[in-house]
Design a protein around this nucleic acid. Structure first.
Lengths: 231, 231
DNA sequence: AACCGTTATCGTCAACAGGACGAAAAGTTC
DNA sequence: GAACTTTTCGTCCTGTTGACGATAACGGTT
């Protein structure tokens, strides 16, 4: 293998959650150069005998403390422009994680701090490396996938109400949805959700039916974003 | 950089086209070990100072002889499971290319032969490395993207008829579509196609209006695949 | 208990989109 | 010219969707 150019390979994570009606991302403040003191996506180098997905899951567990099977983790894209990392030729494989609301994260070894930040308040050029580009790709992927997959359920706990699911859509899409039409559409899409048989208690208003994620992994028909420019 | 594990990075291409009512993929027969004599996706190692997308475009031009701006090229996914390449730890970034029908390719340096093969006739375990998995991902990506993007036009020459676009959909989806409803839907979706002002000549039947690709890169409403199981 | 605010859920109606299919238009082939 | 092929427009009918009224079922207040 000495005949081929040597690269370093990392994984970086776009970890999204919905908390308090805001779409938040897990960021770490870098404790070492380069970009010392800047916010960055959590991530790290891939071991020479480690699978890419395993490395992503390992980093996710390290940063959040949650076991893997919660939420959703998928590959987002790979970024390897020469010069994107001043330490040398580093290719990073970005992963997108969608998680339910969790307790605050713990700082890792290389990170001075780790916290959930609302994506709406992340200014340009605030992030290390090309992480702003990766974040933008993750956001667009998440918004698109809510349309034609049941992945909004990954932002919810195991049992959730239709209203909770609706706030997920409203938060990620930044659009208000009609509660009655949303309820009809979600319960009418086969395999999206299935009733858990229990209801909420203690909240204001009428108790709501609880649901679990259904068996479909593609929505037919899809949940189309409103207010798209049509003819 | 010597402190980090050294990887080799390659690009591999899933190059699809529609020819003679069949979805075809560009494959090369390997002329060197490993997998000597087996069909494989075209690809190669990324230069230490080369961008990933540039490497993909370079390989595409080398194998097909077409300049880049024709068709469509996008990143598909990254595959890096340890052991997928017997030469060592190789991470490959797969790209998906959609091209109009082209003349037969020329064999490259490392390839004994290169040719278009109908995807329907590729048997299991016929491909080198994990290229069968990458091919499956490329096919599914292409099928899905025809639904909500105008990428079917990438399979067509610069000017094309609605009927030509319909055969693209029918071939990629392997489903028959009603010519009248398809015509209404395509011409009614804003930004999908725009008339070129000219008509075909010399064919059988009534001459058809020629169209170019429109300005939209997302279809509203999308072209939904028929015969999906609904309630 | 009576009332009110809040939230969940069901129903109604009109507009629109989409599949099935008839029919006319405009060429080529024999 | 007759037959055939292909494009393009129109019609009918059904199902989906957005706007919104109405009712159900709770907690809190007087």
């Amino acid at each position: 293998m000495t005949e081929y150019p040597p690269f370093a390979v990392t994984v970086d994570l776009v970890v999204l959650t919905v908390r308090e009606d805001e779409l938040c991302i897990l960021l770490v403040r870098r404790g070492v150069p380069p970009y010392h003191g800047r916010w960055a996506l959590p991530g790290g180098f891939v071991g020479i005998d480690e699978d890419l997905a395993d490395a992503a899951a390992r980093e996710l567990t390290e940063e959040t403390g949650v076991p893997e099977p919660i939420g959703h983790l998928e590959q987002l894209g790979t970024y390897g422009t020469p010069g994107r990392d001043p330490r040398g030729r580093v290719v990073t494989v970005a992963y997108l994680a969608l998680l339910p609301d969790l307790p605050p994260p713990v700082a890792g070894t290389d990170a001075a701090a780790a916290d959930w930040l609302p994506v709406s308040r992340i200014a340009d050029a605030e992030l290390a490396f090309d992480h702003d580009v990766i974040l933008a790709a993750g956001l667009e992927r998440a918004r698109a996938k809510l349309e034609y997959t049941p992945l909004a359920t990954a932002f919810c706990p195991a049992e959730f109400t239709i209203a909770r699911l609706r706030t997920v859509y409203e938060t990620v899409w930044n659009r208000q949805l009609d509660p009655r039409n949303f309820h009809r559409k979600v319960t009418g899409t086969p395999g999206f959700v299935e009733p858990a048989g229990r209801v909420t208690e203690g909240d204001r208003g009428r108790p709501a039916q609880l649901y679990r994620r259904g068996s479909a992994d593609l929505l037919h028909p899809p949940m189309l974003r409103p207010s798209v420019t049509r003819g």
